[in-house]
Protein backbone atom coordinates (compact mmCIF):
# COMPACT_ATOMS: atom_id res chain seq x y z
CA UNK A 1 0.00 0.00 0.00
CA UNK A 2 1.14 3.51 -0.68
CA UNK A 3 1.92 5.71 2.26
CA UNK A 4 -0.90 8.09 3.10
CA UNK A 5 1.33 11.11 2.80
CA UNK A 6 1.61 10.65 -0.95
CA UNK A 7 -1.92 11.91 -1.33
CA UNK A 8 -1.58 14.86 0.94
CA UNK A 9 -0.63 18.09 -0.67
CA UNK A 10 1.48 20.19 1.64
CA UNK A 11 0.23 23.74 2.20
CA UNK A 12 3.66 24.98 1.39
CA UNK A 13 7.06 23.52 0.87
CA UNK A 14 8.00 24.08 4.46
CA UNK A 15 5.10 22.27 6.07
CA UNK A 16 6.32 19.45 8.24
CA UNK A 17 9.81 20.84 8.41
CA UNK A 18 11.40 21.56 11.75
CA UNK A 19 11.29 25.27 11.06
CA UNK A 20 7.58 25.19 10.27
CA UNK A 21 6.69 23.30 13.43
CA UNK A 22 8.72 25.69 15.51
CA UNK A 23 7.08 28.75 14.02
CA UNK A 24 3.49 27.49 14.12
CA UNK A 25 3.67 26.23 17.69
CA UNK A 26 4.57 29.68 18.97
CA UNK A 27 1.99 32.22 20.07
CA UNK A 28 0.64 34.07 17.09
CA UNK A 29 2.26 37.44 16.71
CA UNK A 30 1.28 39.44 13.66
CA UNK A 31 4.62 40.36 12.23
CA UNK A 32 3.53 41.09 8.69
CA UNK A 33 4.49 44.52 7.57
CA UNK A 34 1.04 45.35 6.26
CA UNK A 35 -2.29 44.48 7.83
CA UNK A 36 -5.66 44.94 6.23
CA UNK A 37 -8.31 46.52 8.41
CA UNK A 38 -11.31 44.16 8.35
CA UNK A 39 -13.66 47.10 8.75
CA UNK A 40 -12.53 49.79 6.27
CA UNK A 41 -10.21 47.52 4.23
CA UNK A 42 -7.35 50.02 4.41
CA UNK A 43 -3.85 48.65 4.31
CA UNK A 44 -2.14 49.61 7.54
CA UNK A 45 1.49 49.49 8.44
CA UNK A 46 1.73 47.10 11.37
CA UNK A 47 4.06 49.40 13.26
CA UNK A 48 1.50 52.22 12.94
CA UNK A 49 -1.19 49.91 14.18
CA UNK A 50 0.87 48.90 17.16
CA UNK A 51 1.64 52.47 18.02
CA UNK A 52 -2.07 53.19 17.86
CA UNK A 53 -2.87 50.39 20.40
CA UNK A 54 -4.18 48.12 17.61
CA UNK A 55 -6.87 50.60 16.63
CA UNK A 56 -7.23 51.41 12.93
CA UNK A 57 -6.09 55.04 12.51
CA UNK A 58 -8.53 55.48 9.63
CA UNK A 59 -11.84 54.02 10.85
CA UNK A 60 -11.16 53.47 14.57
CA UNK A 61 -11.81 49.73 14.27
CA UNK A 62 -10.54 48.06 17.45
CA UNK A 63 -8.52 44.95 16.63
CA UNK A 64 -8.71 42.17 19.22
CA UNK A 65 -5.90 42.08 21.73
CA UNK A 66 -4.62 39.08 23.56
CA UNK A 67 -4.39 39.28 27.34
CA UNK A 68 -0.68 40.12 27.46
CA UNK A 69 -1.10 42.97 24.97
CA UNK A 70 -4.04 44.23 27.01
CA UNK A 71 -2.11 44.16 30.25
CA UNK A 72 0.84 45.90 28.62
CA UNK A 73 -1.24 48.87 27.49
CA UNK A 74 -3.35 49.08 30.66
CA UNK A 75 -1.15 48.80 33.73
CA UNK A 76 1.79 50.83 34.94
CA UNK A 77 5.10 49.49 33.73
CA UNK A 78 6.37 46.43 35.60
CA UNK A 79 3.50 46.60 38.07
CA UNK A 80 1.71 43.39 37.07
CA UNK A 81 2.16 40.43 39.38
CA UNK A 82 0.54 37.32 38.05
CA UNK A 83 -1.38 34.87 40.27
CA UNK A 84 -2.09 31.18 39.65
CA UNK A 85 -0.19 31.13 36.39
CA UNK A 86 0.35 27.39 36.60
CA UNK A 87 -3.21 26.33 37.34
CA UNK A 88 -4.09 23.84 34.62
CA UNK A 89 -7.48 22.59 33.46
CA UNK A 90 -8.19 18.89 33.69
CA UNK A 91 -10.50 16.79 31.61
CA UNK A 92 -13.06 16.45 34.40
CA UNK A 93 -15.72 14.68 32.33
CA UNK A 94 -13.27 12.61 30.33
CA UNK A 95 -14.69 14.38 27.29
CA UNK A 96 -13.42 13.10 23.93
CA UNK A 97 -10.47 15.07 22.54
CA UNK A 98 -10.61 17.71 25.29
CA UNK A 99 -7.16 16.88 26.66
CA UNK A 100 -5.71 17.30 23.18
CA UNK A 101 -7.63 20.53 22.63
CA UNK A 102 -6.31 21.97 25.88
CA UNK A 103 -2.79 21.10 24.88
CA UNK A 104 -3.21 22.73 21.49
CA UNK A 105 -4.75 25.82 23.04
CA UNK A 106 -1.80 26.15 25.39
CA UNK A 107 0.61 25.84 22.50
CA UNK A 108 -1.14 28.21 20.14
CA UNK A 109 -1.95 30.90 22.71
CA UNK A 110 1.13 30.55 24.85
CA UNK A 111 -1.16 30.74 27.91
CA UNK A 112 -2.34 28.10 30.37
CA UNK A 113 -5.96 29.21 30.51
CA UNK A 114 -8.45 31.67 29.06
CA UNK A 115 -7.86 34.23 31.78
CA UNK A 116 -4.81 35.89 33.29
CA UNK A 117 -5.14 37.26 36.82
CA UNK A 118 -3.02 39.27 39.15
CA UNK A 119 -2.47 42.56 40.87
CA UNK A 120 -1.27 45.74 39.22
CA UNK A 121 -1.20 49.49 39.39
CA UNK A 122 -3.20 51.62 37.00
CA UNK A 123 -2.19 55.27 37.01
CA UNK A 124 -0.58 54.62 40.38
CA UNK A 125 -3.63 52.92 41.91
CA UNK A 126 -3.35 49.38 43.19
CA UNK A 127 -5.98 46.97 41.93
CA UNK A 128 -6.75 43.36 41.20
CA UNK A 129 -6.99 42.52 37.52
CA UNK A 130 -8.38 39.67 35.44
CA UNK A 131 -7.97 39.72 31.69
CA UNK A 132 -9.60 37.12 29.51
CA UNK A 133 -7.92 35.90 26.35
CA UNK A 134 -9.82 34.96 23.21
CA UNK A 135 -6.85 33.12 21.78
CA UNK A 136 -7.34 30.36 24.38
CA UNK A 137 -10.39 28.34 23.29
CA UNK A 138 -12.26 31.53 22.45
CA UNK A 139 -12.12 32.72 26.05
CA UNK A 140 -14.52 29.98 27.07
CA UNK A 141 -15.23 29.49 30.75
CA UNK A 142 -13.64 26.35 32.10
CA UNK A 143 -13.37 25.43 35.77
CA UNK A 144 -9.93 26.95 36.04
CA UNK A 145 -11.14 30.17 34.40
CA UNK A 146 -13.85 30.40 37.05
CA UNK A 147 -11.49 29.36 39.81
CA UNK A 148 -8.88 31.99 38.92
CA UNK A 149 -11.46 34.76 38.72
CA UNK A 150 -13.05 33.65 41.99
CA UNK A 151 -9.68 33.61 43.73
CA UNK A 152 -9.01 37.11 42.37
CA UNK A 153 -12.29 38.39 43.79
CA UNK A 154 -11.56 36.73 47.13
CA UNK A 155 -8.06 38.18 47.22
CA UNK A 156 -9.38 41.64 46.36
CA UNK A 157 -12.06 41.37 49.04
CA UNK A 158 -9.55 40.31 51.67
CA UNK A 159 -7.03 42.99 50.72
CA UNK A 160 -9.65 45.65 50.08
CA UNK A 161 -8.67 46.24 46.47
CA UNK A 162 -10.80 47.41 43.58
CA UNK A 163 -10.99 44.90 40.75
CA UNK A 164 -10.98 45.41 37.00
CA UNK A 165 -12.00 42.60 34.65
CA UNK A 166 -11.61 42.70 30.88
CA UNK A 167 -14.08 40.23 29.40
CA UNK A 168 -13.90 38.41 26.10
CA UNK A 169 -15.60 35.06 25.77
CA UNK A 170 -17.56 32.79 23.51
CA UNK A 171 -19.37 31.54 26.61
CA UNK A 172 -19.37 28.20 28.35
CA UNK A 173 -16.84 25.47 27.69
CA UNK A 174 -18.93 22.55 26.51
CA UNK A 175 -16.23 20.01 27.22
CA UNK A 176 -16.55 20.75 30.93
CA UNK A 177 -20.33 20.37 30.93
CA UNK A 178 -22.04 21.24 34.19
CA UNK A 179 -18.73 22.29 35.79
CA UNK A 180 -18.51 25.11 33.27
CA UNK A 181 -22.07 26.21 34.08
CA UNK A 182 -21.37 26.19 37.82
CA UNK A 183 -18.53 28.67 37.36
CA UNK A 184 -21.19 31.28 36.64
CA UNK A 185 -22.62 30.83 40.13
CA UNK A 186 -19.20 30.56 41.73
CA UNK A 187 -17.78 33.75 40.23
CA UNK A 188 -21.06 35.58 40.92
CA UNK A 189 -20.89 34.59 44.57
CA UNK A 190 -17.36 35.94 44.87
CA UNK A 191 -18.33 39.13 43.01
CA UNK A 192 -21.25 39.63 45.42
CA UNK A 193 -19.02 39.28 48.49
CA UNK A 194 -16.59 41.80 47.00
CA UNK A 195 -19.47 44.18 46.36
CA UNK A 196 -20.95 43.69 49.84
CA UNK A 197 -17.55 44.59 51.29
CA UNK A 198 -18.05 48.04 49.75
CA UNK A 199 -15.46 47.63 47.05
CA UNK A 200 -15.35 48.76 43.43
CA UNK A 201 -15.64 46.34 40.52
CA UNK A 202 -15.25 47.68 37.00
CA UNK A 203 -16.00 45.49 34.00
CA UNK A 204 -14.60 46.32 30.60
CA UNK A 205 -16.53 44.49 27.89
CA UNK A 206 -14.47 43.76 24.81
CA UNK A 207 -15.28 42.05 21.53
CA UNK A 208 -16.89 39.54 21.81
CA UNK A 209 -18.45 38.88 25.22
CA UNK A 210 -21.29 36.36 25.11
CA UNK A 211 -23.02 33.47 26.85
CA UNK A 212 -22.24 32.45 30.39
CA UNK A 213 -19.72 35.23 30.94
CA UNK A 214 -22.28 37.87 29.97
CA UNK A 215 -24.85 36.15 32.18
CA UNK A 216 -22.53 36.26 35.18
CA UNK A 217 -19.58 38.45 36.19
CA UNK A 218 -19.47 40.56 33.00
CA UNK A 219 -22.81 42.14 33.86
CA UNK A 220 -22.18 42.33 37.61
CA UNK A 221 -19.71 45.20 37.56
CA UNK A 222 -20.61 48.24 39.64
CA UNK A 223 -19.42 50.19 36.64
CA UNK A 224 -19.59 48.61 33.21
CA UNK A 225 -17.46 50.03 30.40
CA UNK A 226 -17.22 48.77 26.85
CA UNK A 227 -14.89 49.23 23.92
CA UNK A 228 -16.53 50.70 20.81
CA UNK A 229 -18.53 48.30 18.64
CA UNK A 230 -17.80 45.24 20.82
CA UNK A 231 -20.31 42.44 20.38
CA UNK A 232 -21.97 41.81 23.74
CA UNK A 233 -24.93 39.53 24.29
CA UNK A 234 -26.32 36.45 25.95
CA UNK A 235 -27.15 34.40 22.86
CA UNK A 236 -24.82 34.73 19.90
CA UNK A 237 -26.23 36.46 16.79
CA UNK A 238 -26.14 33.27 14.72
CA UNK A 239 -28.16 31.34 17.30
CA UNK A 240 -30.75 34.11 17.43
CA UNK A 241 -31.04 34.24 13.65
CA UNK A 242 -31.57 30.50 13.55
CA UNK A 243 -34.20 30.68 16.30
CA UNK A 244 -36.27 33.57 14.98
CA UNK A 245 -35.51 32.95 11.31
CA UNK A 246 -34.84 36.54 10.41
CA UNK A 247 -31.83 38.78 9.93
CA UNK A 248 -30.77 40.90 12.86
CA UNK A 249 -30.73 44.67 12.50
CA UNK A 250 -27.46 46.50 11.91
CA UNK A 251 -25.57 47.21 15.11
CA UNK A 252 -27.61 44.71 17.15
CA UNK A 253 -25.77 43.61 20.32
CA UNK A 254 -22.96 46.09 19.78
CA UNK A 255 -21.71 48.32 22.63
CA UNK A 256 -23.60 51.33 21.24
CA UNK A 257 -26.82 49.27 21.30
CA UNK A 258 -26.21 48.25 24.91
CA UNK A 259 -25.53 51.85 25.87
CA UNK A 260 -28.81 52.91 24.30
CA UNK A 261 -30.70 50.13 26.09
CA UNK A 262 -29.12 51.04 29.41
CA UNK A 263 -26.78 48.11 29.99
CA UNK A 264 -23.39 49.83 29.93
CA UNK A 265 -22.24 52.98 31.68
CA UNK A 266 -19.92 54.28 29.00
CA UNK A 267 -18.18 53.37 25.78
CA UNK A 268 -14.52 54.17 26.08
CA UNK A 269 -12.12 54.08 23.11
CA UNK A 270 -9.04 52.01 23.79
CA UNK A 271 -6.75 55.02 23.86
CA UNK A 272 -8.67 56.50 26.78
CA UNK A 273 -9.21 53.33 28.79
CA UNK A 274 -6.20 53.47 31.06
CA UNK A 275 -6.82 57.05 32.03
CA UNK A 276 -10.54 56.36 32.55
CA UNK A 277 -9.86 53.38 34.80
CA UNK A 278 -7.34 55.36 36.83
CA UNK A 279 -9.81 58.21 37.21
CA UNK A 280 -12.65 55.95 38.31
CA UNK A 281 -10.52 54.07 40.80
CA UNK A 282 -9.22 57.38 42.17
CA UNK A 283 -12.80 58.56 42.75
CA UNK A 284 -13.36 55.52 44.92
CA UNK A 285 -10.22 55.75 47.01
CA UNK A 286 -10.27 59.45 47.75
CA UNK A 287 -11.14 60.59 51.26
CA UNK A 288 -13.19 63.74 51.50
CA UNK A 289 -11.11 66.92 51.44
CA UNK A 290 -7.98 65.09 50.34
Amino acid sequence: MLPNSLFKKPLNALEGSEWYNKVTSKPFVPNDLWIKCPSCKSMLLSSDLEENLQVCPKCRHHFRLNARQRIAITVDEDSFQEFDKDLLSKNLLDFPDYTKKLKNARLSSGENESVICGTARIGGHACALSVMDSSFMMGSMGSVTGEKITRMFEYATKNRLPIVIFTVSGGARMQEGIFSLMQMAKTSGAAKRHSDAGLLYITVLTDPTTGGVTASFAMEGGIILAEPKALVGFAGPRVIEQTIRQRLPQGFQRSEFLLEKGFVDAIVPRGELKETLARLIALHTKEEGQ
Binding site: S216, T243, P249
Partner: peptide
Protein backbone atom coordinates in the same frame (compact mmCIF):
# COMPACT_ATOMS: atom_id res chain seq x y z
CA UNK B 1 -32.97 33.88 22.61
CA UNK B 2 -34.58 36.57 20.52
CA UNK B 3 -34.43 40.27 19.79
CA UNK B 4 -36.60 41.43 22.70
CA UNK B 5 -34.77 39.22 25.17
CA UNK B 6 -31.43 40.70 24.16
CA UNK B 7 -32.73 44.26 24.07
CA UNK B 8 -33.96 43.95 27.61
CA UNK B 9 -30.79 42.30 28.84
CA UNK B 10 -31.23 38.55 29.17
CA UNK B 11 -27.63 38.17 30.26
CA UNK B 12 -27.91 40.97 32.79
CA UNK B 13 -31.15 39.58 34.22
CA UNK B 14 -29.68 36.12 34.80
CA UNK B 15 -26.44 37.60 36.15
CA UNK B 16 -28.40 39.66 38.64
CA UNK B 17 -30.28 36.60 39.85
CA UNK B 18 -27.03 34.70 40.45
Amino acid sequence: CGIGAEERGEGQAIAENL
